[in-house]
């Protein structure tokens, strides 16, 4: 098992970064959110399915490995999303139009970020695990909860974190939220 940092100052800085990010998204400041991204960002939401158990892996943790359920990348995978900066910018800019009908009225969202674990990768890079609970309300009593985890790579650029990579793993195989086109 990899060991996370116990540098309280670092963990606190990362948490504060995530809280600020969540607040920007919940306050619909998607354009400001773009400034938190590294231009080389890779933003991946793997697909998730129910595989056949592998009898050869029985009695080991590999038998229940979450990775077996995920479709990430490569020619045989069909992830839900594999965005770069351009696609994220399209998503971030789209709602600010009168004709953005899917945001008319705009959904009300609230993001809770927890379980933050920080692992230093190199001098300025960190692998960070976190969980999220995104509450989504748009049409009257039609409310939804999105729950999952994020595996990020953050880079410290002159005292400011930038998201270099984000993988969002959700805990359903049949998506019951109205859209996965949100910013998680």
């Amino acid at each position: 098992m990899s060991t996370g940092t116990t540098d309280r100052d670092l963990v606190c800085r990362v948490e504060q970064f995530y809280y600020r990010e969540a607040r920007l998204l919940d306050e619909r400041c998607f354009q400001q959110w773009l400034a938190l991204l590294d231009p080389s960002i890779e933003y991946l939401i793997p697909s998730r399915h129910v595989p056949m158990p592998d009898p050869g892996a029985r009695d080991t943790e590999a038998f229940l490995a979450v990775d077996r359920e995920l479709g990430r990348s490569g020619p045989d995978a069909s992830p839900l999303r594999h965005d770069r900066f351009l696609q994220l910018a399209m998503r971030a800019m789209r709602p600010y139009k009168v004709t953005a009908w899917a945001e008319s009225p705009p959904p009300r969202t609230r993001r809770m970020i927890t379980n933050v674990e920080v692992e230093p990768l190199d001098e300025s890079g960190y692998r960070v695990y976190s969980n999220f609970h995104l509450f989504f309300s748009q049409g009257g009593a039609d409310n939804h909860s999105y729950i999952g985890c994020r595996r990020d790579v953050l880079r410290d650029v002159e005292g400011q974190f930038r998201i270099v990579r984000r993988e969002v793993i959700t805990d359903w195989d049949i998506i019951t939220g109205p859209t996965m086109a949100l910013l998680f």
């Binding site: 939401i45 839900l80 999303r81 594999h82 696609q87 399209m90 789209r94 859209t179 996965m180 086109a181």
Partner: peptide, 16 residues
């Protein structure tokens, strides 16, 4: 995947 499917920006509008 950018435009259609659960994470697509076009299908987001269709499904709504």
């Amino acid at each position: 995947s950018v435009f259609f499917g659960p994470g697509g920006i076009i299908e987001q509008e269709d499904s709504y």
